[in-house]
Amino acid sequence: MEALPEGVDIGDYVFAFEIVLSDPELKSNMQLLDLPGKNDVALSANHLQKLHLSFLLTTPLGKPFKPHQHIFVVENTGKQFKITLDFLGLVEKFFYLSGQCDIELTVGDAVMENSFLQLLGSIELDLPKAPEKATQPPPQVVSPYLRFGPKAEINHIFRVPEKRPPQEVSYAFLGLVLVPLLTFLVGLLRLGVNFKNFPTSAVPATFAILFHGGIAAVLLLYVLFWLKLDLFTTLKTLGLLGIFLMFVGHRTFLTLPQQQPS
């Protein structure tokens, strides 16, 4: 701490805190609390009363200080933070729930060493009964620590497959798809396609066969990819096959033009 330059207010902050329960008819009931000691204020109030909470925060160097976080929306009057809880206006926010409430104060800031969350005490509220149209209170949390527990597992819902057509229809269309392929092959035969241009001498023939085998291997790899392989394995194998195919195909096409008459 000594290494810090002067003017940097870091360290233990000093609090003074007071709590006042006021009644329009009766005189106020004021209590001074000793922070950061242990407090156990027990108050009881009804909806006609008001609760004033105020605290004073000073830095180690004695300056007033406004922390970044404190739980209430506090109006800052000079050095003091104040809040007035008017129970008459708050009954709706409390959902007309009577009973014992805990009062907690949280004060925090990045430069405070002793930011805290402290239980100040409790107040027994006696609120009027809820009217018919009042909003229902949200469901109570069973345990405050349940918020930090594991959430319910999220299951992915797959799209339900639609009803498939009967098998006969599928097979009929499979046959129908094969018809153009057959037409293609028959047409090839009718055009008089031949393999006369296929290289006959040993080395070019080997390259040509390797080239066609390579294409077949790539297509087979695609089928395997469709059936069981994943993309990474496929791409690795495809890279190797592609290099092989490039080399062989290049050699094959180099040999072809020499055989052509022109």
Partner: peptide, 29 residues
């Protein structure tokens, strides 16, 4: 030339296969 005819035949083959698939989609879903 024959090589162009082969290609034409191939195109017809591919397009008619595509048409059959479209017809399948229209009929079956």
């Amino acid at each position: 030339p024959t090589n162009l005819k082969i290609i034409d035949l191939y195109v017809v083959f591919a397009v008619s296969t595509a048409l059959i698939q479209v017809a399948y989609m229209a009929i079956v879903g």
